[in-house]
Simulated scan of single mutants.
Amino acid sequence: MSIENMSIQELESMESCIPEVGGFPSRVMAATRGYDTWISKLYSDIDHIIKRCIFPTASYRQNDPEDRYNVDIANTLSTMGYQAHHDKWKNGHPDIVVESHRGYQWIGESKIHSDYNYLLEGFRQLTTRYSSGFIAQNHGAILIITKNRSIKDLMSNWENKLISSEYSDVAVQKCTIDDDCFISTHTHQVSGSEYTVRHIPISILFNPTDKSARKNKA
């Protein structure tokens, strides 16, 4: 069978052999398989953007504001076929909103890390203002942009800060997708149901010590 006559599902099974399709078939099929599958695919694509697009350009991003990252992520998701928006009104201006015609919704709130209280403000914005916590709208993320030398220390400290905050019922678990991330769940104040947040570090550390890098800095 030629590629022109393949169904989306058939193309999905051959994605690894056909890079030209750019993951489109699996994105289409993920949406048909339910909200949780759609979320998993979305996170796979967000991780790809962070690791393949943002970190490799860290040297150019040392003075960028938060919105540079939000625009880059939202626009790249849009080119992948998602209904992704930056600064779309949701009882305020959440940094990134991704939606689907099926009613699915995910919200990401990004913060350039300065201190852990600032991260906690982002968590409050996400969970008490922007999100509803309703069915198929009960996942979001905190995107932590950082120049810290140790991502593991940063995330451990942030996890402890979140656990000791006013969110008394928050539960934390490891992220099965990426060890550098973690997952938190708590009861959403609007829906009264469980709301899940993935906490994602975005490293822009750039402090090379090789000879050519030192010469370029001079």
Rank of each mutant, 00 (worst) to 15 (best):
M1E: 11
S2D: 14
E4V: 10
E4K: 14
M6T: 05
M6C: 10
S7Q: 08
I8Q: 04
I8V: 15
E10T: 12
E10K: 14
L11D: 02
E12H: 03
E15K: 07
P19V: 10
E20T: 11
E20I: 12
G22T: 06
P25A: 07
R27Q: 10
M29F: 01
M29Q: 06
A30D: 07
A30I: 07
G34E: 06
T37I: 14
T37V: 15
T37C: 11
W38L: 10
W38P: 08
I39P: 00
S40L: 12
K41P: 00
Y43F: 15
S44H: 05
S44K: 05
H48K: 15
I49G: 04
I49E: 05
I50K: 03
I50Q: 01
K51H: 11
C53Q: 14
F55M: 13
T57W: 02
T57G: 02
S59C: 11
R61G: 00
Q62D: 09
D64I: 00
D64H: 08
P65K: 13
D67W: 06
Y69I: 12
V71K: 10
A74Y: 02
T76M: 08
S78F: 04
S78M: 10
Q83M: 13
A84M: 07
A84E: 02
A84G: 04
H86V: 05
K90E: 14
N91V: 03
N91R: 13
N91D: 13
N91M: 09
P94T: 09
D95H: 06
I96D: 02
I96M: 04
I96F: 03
E99V: 09
E99K: 11
H101V: 14
G103T: 12
Q105V: 07
Q105R: 15
W106K: 04
I107S: 04
I107V: 15
G108H: 01
E109F: 01
S110D: 13
I112Q: 05
H113V: 13
N117R: 09
Y118H: 13
L120Q: 02
L120P: 00
G122S: 06
F123N: 02
Q125F: 01
T127K: 01
T128Q: 13
Y130H: 02
S132K: 08
Q137T: 09
N138E: 10
H139N: 13
L143R: 02
I145G: 01
I145W: 02
S150F: 03
K152F: 10
S156L: 13
W158V: 04
I163N: 03
I163G: 01
E166R: 12
Y167E: 08
S168L: 10
D169E: 10
D169P: 06
D169G: 06
A171N: 12
K174V: 09
C175D: 15
I177S: 08
D178S: 11
D178W: 06
D179C: 07
D180G: 09
C181F: 04
C181N: 15
I183Y: 03
I183M: 09
H186N: 06
H188N: 09
H188V: 11
S191G: 08
S193N: 15
E194I: 15
E194H: 00
T196M: 09
I200K: 02
I200P: 04
I202W: 01
I202H: 04
N207G: 01
P208K: 08
P208R: 10
T209F: 04
S212G: 02
S212M: 13
S212V: 14
A213W: 01
A213E: 12
A218I: 11
